[in-house]
Design a protein around this nucleic acid. Sequence first.
DNA 1: CTCTCCCT
Length: 832
Amino acid sequence: MNRLPIAEVLPALRAHLAAHSAVVLQAPPGAGKTTGVPPALLDAPWLAGRRVLMLEPRRLAARAAAAYMARGYGEAVGDTVGYRVRFDSKVSARTRIEVVTEGILTRRLQSDPALEGVGLVIFDEFHERHLETDLALALVRDAQRLLRPDLKILVMSATLDGEGIARLLDAPLVISEGRMFPVQTHYAAREPEGPLAASAVSAVRAALSAHEGDVLVFLPGGGEIRRAQALLADLAPQADVLPLYGDLGWEQQDRALRPGPRRKVVLATPIAETSLTIEGVRIVVDAGYTRVPQFDPATGLTRLATVRVARASADQRAGRAGRLGPGVCYRLWTESVHRGLLAQPLPEIKTADLAGLALDLALWGTEAEALTWLDPPPRAALAQARDLLRDLGALDAANRITPVGREMAALPLHPRLAHLIRCGEARGAGAAACDIAALLSERDLYTGAERQTVDIAARLDALVGFRRSGRAGAQALGADPDACARVDRAARQWRRLLKASTLDAPAVEAGVLLAAAYPDRVAAQRRPNDTHYLLANGRGARLPSYDVHLRAPYLVAANVDAGEAEGVIHLAASVGLADIRDILAARVETVDVVRWDDQSAAVVTRREERLGKLLLRSGASAEVPAERVRAAMLEGVRRLGVAALPWTDEARGWRARVLSMRAWFPEEEWPDVTDAALGATLEHWLAPHLDGYTRRDQLAKLDLLAILQLRLSPAQSQRLREGAPPHLAVPSGSRLPLAYRPGEPPVLAVKLQEMFGCTDTPRVGFGRIPVVLHLLSPARRPIQVTQDLRGFWERTYPEVRKELKGRYPKHPWPDDPLTAPATARTVRKRRV
DNA sequence: CTCTCCCT
């Protein structure tokens, strides 16, 4: 057996572990750390016969590592070396090395925080920085500090971030060399343009003619892989082009992994970066992108974004060409772009939905701030997670776990889905609830071109078909049998955790239970038969174009990509309005809406039922308090403007007089009755008169003058009549109207003949303001404007008289206007 | 541009 590179550092590792409570081992892939380290530590005196627990991020890797080590002992798995993963375990009382996956470790810590019987916890592949790895490290560290000072931690990481974690844990860092063949890396001369698939395909053609061996191409997703596959169809006789991504069934994945009769071009997602190893690869073509989920705490939705690969991931991909011998890697980006890439991918904890983590932290009972994190959970996402958990009843107002929360934590799935199962159980439909939850948490039953609807109901039918008639039953309904098997297995696991009595249940509409789990994603169709919806959280989302079936007025969009301007619905179920109102009764708000409607120029009153941003129902309102109607009517007047009130000439005159007094006697308290001031004080002076008013046309009934006059006290009204009289008596005996304009002296239009004998200009404002006389001809044409009547008689009248005497011979034009009798009479030609 | 990968 070859001596592994890791062997050289084992003595140092043993020495450090004996002296420290935590050690970091940095070793690249191929060093043999996963299977080399645990057996080498088993006889350490500090372990004192206790177990080594090793965390692996994948089930496949956990089982494989256990099997490899067991062979080294010449034993069966489950003797000295065992494993425990979901759905499967091989451990016994003799087991000293137990390989576990992430969910298993978290749950063991929750039920046994002191990790009885365990002397060492190893975190393998720590650089992958899965959410649960970070959580598990924080919890183990906390347990070590509070309960188990003798417990030791070994963090094993493949890449350069070993120093950061060593500093965090105050741990010595041990570095091992890897054992890899050299890989020659080529960068693009300039950044490629156009579709990724096309650039990747040209690189593949060039590489195939320049080198020996199979090609592994990294593309971000299934869409790009299918496009590249179509572009490479002409390679058919010489080479096999094989897709490889998670949605494919086992058979197809297996074809890509096995050595074949011809050269292979494998088109893969990052699944081939760590999870799967392909035989025979000497050439890697890396398009340089990857898809990552980005959780948005504001909407509670996740967006799948296509981003540049990190340098560490690109190195990992290149390394795939150097497993057999020297290899070559083509990177479809320039060296200068490469220098700008992130060194490591963002750890999951920074971008993920933290609902599960928040529930685990609440169950653990230590504040997040008091734990040790390489990257602490972001505040906004943690706050959103706690809001959701309080909503679901898992946390109390102080964010402490409730009995309901404990029950939810006991179900191994997302808190929303745990809630869904509890709701199903309460309705006697536990089995159906398990199926629905499984469809949402496992890979989709429909893949690629088979995906013709987002409807969960169709998937439930396919699941029934699978259970009744096996793989053929699933395939008959267009579903992937492997995916059906996974969903079925998950559903059965949860059913075992439920009370048997709730399992033989009447059918329950999927939409009903989904509404309970995703109240914020209940969605209403924008228009009849539309593909666009509004979610209760206020976000818009659309059905994908391939779905031509689901056109329900209401959906629960359980799986929605946040998208850019609009979300895209990937899984949904229709739900009836009555069911929404029933299951979400506590969240449906009933509001009596009383508001002014500009369109109809009237107050409208409606009773509305709302779920978040959705309007569920709108109908006639019951009795609405009069003051709310009055307030809405007032708002209407405000919007129409004071000018829309029924102003009469008299009312306008009154207003001008009040404003004149206000201008002339600023020391007195005259109210401001301009449009602006009246508009700003409607509540005060108009509101009391609007009882029973609901429409604009009713305003005509208002006696505006009478209402305005109430703004003056009786004494003020009296003073107004005296100081700014509406009419003025002139020498002829006529009472003539005065025209007031705020800020100016009022105007008296009067025929010249009516003023004979009068020498002093009439005054208002208690003698303070001489009026402006508009002296008129007998035909009421303006002759002169003056505030100096005496001056007029003396200087202007003789001229005027000369000019007009001939034109109006039948009117008096006396030589001395000061002694002539004033008269309003015109000619006497119209006798009756 | 029809959703990456992984896990209880």
